[in-house]
Design a protein around this nucleic acid. Structure first.
Length: 220
DNA sequence: AGTGCGATTGACT
DNA sequence: GTCAATCGCACTA
């Protein structure tokens, strides 16, 4: 008779505490897929790192949305402006903007220089600097720390001053990868909160990850 | 110079 | 579940 193993209680805080921050290396720009949708998939499981005022915070990217070329919901759709020009930079640059007067959204520019497209980072699984994130967010919760794009920005102290940062360079905000970690199981869905292009399946997330945002039914 | 609105969040019924 | 807050920016005039 096989021994019935007792199921380990799903405790997010324990999961975080026991998650080793493995060997992290900076992503090179040449590693990033040029295609916006491929980039959105690629970024799941990669790590966003923030070095700010002597504090390091980082988290695994668990949810993204693609805003490809020609997408009427994308900020580049109206053409190049003072506000959105970072979207037209080479892949791997940050595009940060304020929405509804209160939430910053952090994007990764995609495609070649001169082409406007990007990937919205919608949620992180916190890794380093959890207490710092908790202070910035004003909560002791763990699953709510960076679940949702505005919360992600707050937890990582990302604001408009981060717009244009090269995420593939040594600096205050960059993208890393832990090559030791196993590949991610991806799911996709429609994008959240849009009034245009509502049917396109351009949201990607790690299947079953408790740090993924969105309504029930769009998390599994 | 004025208007409308948005890739959200948190508070509240 | 509903709903208001709050700001920068593109657009119109």
């Amino acid at each position: 008779m096989p021994i019935q193993r007792k199921r380990v209680t799903a405790d997010p805080s324990h999961a975080i505490a026991s998650t080793p921050v493995g060997r992290l290396r900076r992503l090179r720009r040449s590693e990033l897929p040029e295609d916006t949708i491929e980039l959105a998939r690629f970024l799941i499981g990669k790590v966003l790192v923030r070095d700010h005022r002597g504090n390091r915070t980082s988290g695994r990217i668990v949810e993204t949305e693609a805003y490809p070329v020609g997408d009427a919901a994308g900020h580049a759709f109206i053409g190049l402006t003072a506000a959105n020009h970072s979207l037209f930079r080479a892949k791997g640059h940050a595009y940060v903007y304020l929405i509804y007067g209160l939430s910053y959204m952090c994007n990764v520019a995609a495609e070649r220089r001169g082409i406007g497209a990007g990937v919205l980072l919608r949620a992180l699984e916190p890794l380093e600097g959890i207490s710092v994130m908790q202070r910035r967010r004003g909560t002791t919760g763990l699953t709510e720390l960076a679940k949702g794009p505005g919360r992600l920005a707050t937890a990582m102290a990302i604001d408009r001053r981060c717009d244009g940062i090269d995420l593939c360079a040594a600096g205050p905000l960059w993208l890393g990868v832990d090559d030791e970690r196993p590949a991610v199981r991806l799911s996709r869905s429609v994008r959240i909160g849009l009034t245009k292009e509502v049917d396109r399946l351009l949201r990607f997330y790690e299947r079953g990850n408790v740090y993924v945002s969105g309504p029930r039914g769009l998390r599994r």
